[in-house]
Design a protein around this nucleic acid. Structure first.
Lengths: 115, 115
DNA sequence: CCGGAGGTTCGAAGTTGTTCGTACCTCGCC
DNA sequence: GGCGAGGTACGAACAACTTCGAACCTCCGG
C-alpha cells in the first residue's frame, strides 16, 4: 500500500473516522489546503507551494493531521515533500469534499432537505 | 429572525460558517444527536429524549453549540425544550448531512462503504 | 402550595489543539 | 566539502473545548 519510496504512512480507509475527518476539515488553514487540492487536477503538489502564514513546524503539524485523518497522501522526495488527495477518500465519504469545496450539491442541488 | 414564542435565537443561514459547522459535527455526542434527527421525520423532538450520558449542564452546552452552528432550531416549551433540524441547512450545505448520516452518496454512488 | 422534572448560568478542572522556537536532518547545488 | 532550502521532532506557552457540580429558575401535577 504505502511502501513506495518516501511515502509516509497513512491509515487504512476502513480505519478512517468521520469525527477525525471533520475535525481536520474544521481548521481554516487545513480546509484552505484541501480546497486547493480539490480545485486542482488531482496530481501531487509541493507542500512549500501553499501560502500558509505559519511557522515551518506548524505546517508539518497540519500535514500530519491531514494525513492521519486519511485525507491526503504525502511523499518525501529528497529536498521537498508533496501532497495529494487520496482518491479513495471520495468513495468513502461521497459529497463531503464537494461541500468543503463550496460546490454545494455537485449533482443533487434540489434536495428538499427536511422532508 | 425567529420571534415565535419560546424560539431561541439562531444565526441567519448566510452567517453560518462551514468551519463552525464542521467543528460542531466533529463531536461524537453532537453527531449522534444530528444522526437521530436526520433519521427522524423532521418534526421536533424533546431534548430530554436523547440518551446522552452527560450532565444536564453539558447537554445544555451541546444544544447551544448545535444551535449557534446553524444546524438546529430550539424551542422552549414550558417544562421542556425541543429541537429539530433547520430545513434550510440542507440547502446551504447539500450532502453534508447525508455524509454524517452514513448514507454516503444519497443518490449516485455504489461504494463498498461500511465495513 | 409543594415537589420534582427539565433547563440555564456560572465557575472550575482537566483535556485537547494550535502555535512557535530551537535543534537537527537530508538533499541538491556551487 | 560547505551552504541553504525544505522538513521533522521536541518542548513550551497559550487558547479552546469538554465536562462537571452547585445554585437557581420555571413550569406541571398532585
Amino acid at each position: 500500500m504505502s511502501s513506495m519510496p518516501g511515502e509516509l504512512p497513512v491509515p487504512e480507509m476502513a480505519d478512517v473516522d468521520l469525527g477525525t475527518v471533520l475535525s481536520a476539515l474544521a481548521d481554516p488553514h487545513r480546509r484552505a489546503v484541501v480546497l486547493e487540492l480539490v480545485a486542482g487536477d488531482g496530481t501531487e503538489r509541493a507542500c512549500s507551494s501553499f501560502p500558509l502564514p505559519l511557522a515551518k513546524s506548524t505546517r508539518t503539524h497540519h500535514w500530519k493531521v491531514l494525513r492521519q485523518a486519511g485525507l491526503v497522501r504525502q511523499r518525501d522526495a529528497g529536498n521537498g515533500t508533496f501532497v495529494r488527495l487520496r482518491p479513495e477518500f471520495g468513495a468513502k465519504f461521497p459529497g463531503l469534499l464537494d461541500v468543503v469545496a463550496g460546490l454545494s450539491a455537485a449533482r443533487s442541488a434540489h434536495l428538499p432537505s427536511g422532508r
